[in-house]
Structure formats: structure tokens, C-alpha cells
Design a protein around this nucleic acid. Structure first.
Lengths: 160, 160
DNA sequence: TATTGTTATACTCTATAACTATA
DNA sequence: TATAGTTATAGAGTATAACAATA
């Protein structure tokens, strides 16, 4: 099976340039994101996880008893789009949902033992994937990358 | 209408942390990408363009007479997914498709006058959007960002 | 045999409106 | 009135297999 991260396109036709789009930082971010998504898919597929289910497990593990609305806000995901995710994780026995006595609209989400176990495995695999992807890059540059990405995110969300 | 770049989630529920995901650069890239996508949508919607149609117009303008396969390779998009894009641009009179005598399987794509005009307008709008998004950021940091993103993309695609 | 453009298809992601039950 | 979780839905984005025409 061809890895989803393979180089696309014909091996014979002369490659043309995407220089005209490179001035746009958004374009470079999108290309990097597509590479990461494809790699991450290969990593998470064997565990039957996707980016969103992995992210949800991680935040539930780190913020026990949080609600779906809190999770949606933390992940910047629309609440309706989390319903199927939570259903899936719950159906697989990876999380529990307890009713909250003080607010009967909400559920408190927690990892089950099995969920914590899978999350640990997945985290290790994802970390290894990231390490490979960032191999050889300067730590200072990576720190700058994180900071600038956060700045961009803030510039975009603040100007609403 | 609420801008799509608004901050999601409840204004009252205590915000919980996504710190557990921040060690993953991929997570920060995805969040930044989502912000950019939403903003760009607001910018391109009035011109009936999407990221992919804008990108296609840009590369066709910069590489006249290229083929769909070349365009797909340059954009890292699967060829089938370009068919509807090209159909749309052609149907709106923004590009031309001439048969190539030396290879009758392919079409040579070019901007029409109208396509060039729309592209010029769109490019200006997208550039203004980027300028706002990158406002206040250090030019050296932005240069680092571009370089590191390219490195990540290469690390990911080379290891196929 | 291999490539181009295409059809068909499926899954994922993102977004919005509107409902219910609770607050 | 407003929020939490939900249903329904629609539009994008991404990926793969397979076909006809052509190389």
C-alpha cells in the first residue's frame, strides 16, 4: 500500500513551481498541516483513533470531569461535532460519562482504565512521530515556531 | 452574523486547559490553520472563491499552459479532486483549456482576461488578510517560521 | 505498460439552525 | 432568557479504485 505521505503527481511530467503561493504563510502552514495529517493518520489508524479522538482523550485525561462544552471550547470545535466523537469513545469503553448532580444538563467526562491505557500507547506513538518529523531542527527555531503560531492564532481569534 | 473566527464555546463555563496538547507542534499548526482557513473564507467568499480555487488560479497564472496533473502535483492535491475545481473555473470563464497537439491526453490551462482580473483582486484581498494576521510579528521570526515549516514538510514527504 | 483526465465513492472535517431539558 | 447536549444537514477537504483515451 502506498503511504499517504508519498509525493503526489506524475514522476515524468516536468514539475512546475508553486513559488507564487509561497509568499503566503497560510499556504506553507496548510502544506505542513497536510503532511502532518497524513503521517498522523498512519500512526493513529492502527489504534482506531483520529486526530480528534486522540485530542479529546488527551484533554479528558488532563482535565478530569470536564463537560463536552468545555472540551469543545478547549479544542475550538463546534459542540455538535463532538457528539459523535464522545459517542464513539464512550461506546468503545474509553471514557465514562457521569451525570452531574449540581447541573443535570451536563456530563462529567473521565478516562476509563482502558482509555488511559490506549491514550498512553497513542501518546507515545504520536510523540515518536513528532520526533521524527522535527528531527534535525534547531530547538530555538522550534520555540520560535510555537510562539509565532500562537501569535497568529491570537491575531486571528482576537479580531472577531 | 457571527464571524466564523469568533471564539467558540460557552462564555460562562470555566475554560479548561489544552496544555496537554501544546507539546505537539502539529496541534499548534492545526489551530493556526483553522484560524487562517476561517479568515480566508471570509475574505474569498465574496468573490466566490475557495482556498483551492484561489490557489489553482494563482499557479495557472504563474505557470501558463500547465496541465491538470502538473497543477495537482504542485499543489499536492489528488488529481481527481482537481476535476471539479477546473470544471468550475472553466465554467465561470476564468480559465481556458486548449488541447495540446503533442499530447492529446492533456489540456493546457491558462487564465482568461477575466480570470486574471479576478485573481488580481483576490490576491490583493488575501495579501491584506495575511498582513493583518501577521501584524506586529517580527520579520526574522516569520522568516524562521517559513523555513521551519518547509523543513517539516520535507521531513514528512521525504520519509515516504 | 504507463499517464491523463475522469467517474464514482467514501470518509473526515467544519459549520449552522433548531430542538429538549435544564438552569 | 440562556446554556448543555443533541439532531439534522450541508458544504468542504481528502483519499482510493477503476475506466477510456492516449502515449
Amino acid at each position: 500500500m502506498a503511504l499517504s505521505t508519498r509525493i503526489k503527481g506524475s514522476p515524468t511530467a516536468p514539475r512546475i513551481s508553486d513559488e507564487a503561493l509561497r509568499p503566503f504563510v497560510g499556504y506553507s502552514i496548510k502544506r505542513a498541516m497536510n503532511v502532518i495529517r497524513a503521517d498522523l493518520r498512519d500512526v493513529l489508524d492502527p489504534m482506531d483513533l483520529r486526530m480528534i479522538t486522540f485530542s479529546a482523550l488527551t484533554l479528558i485525561g488532563d482535565n478530569p470531569a470536564l463537560s463536552q462544552a468545555q472540551l469543545a471550547a478547549a479544542l475550538s470545535v463546534e459542540r455538535p461535532n463532538l457528539v459523535a466523537v464522545i459517542d464513539e469513545l464512550y461506546g468503545r469503553g474509553l471514557i465514562s460519562r457521569e451525570k452531574v448532580p449540581t447541573d443535570r444538563r451536563t456530563y462529567a467526562l473521565r478516562l476509563t482504565t482502558q482509555g488511559a491505557r490506549l491514550l498512553a500507547r497513542a501518546t507515545e506513538a504520536v510523540q515518536a512521530h513528532e520526533d521524527k518529523l522535527l528531527e534535525g531542527l534547531d530547538p530555538d527555531d522550534l520555540a520560535t515556531l510555537r510562539r509565532v503560531l500562537a501569535d497568529i492564532e491570537r491575531n486571528g481569534t482576537e479580531r472577531s
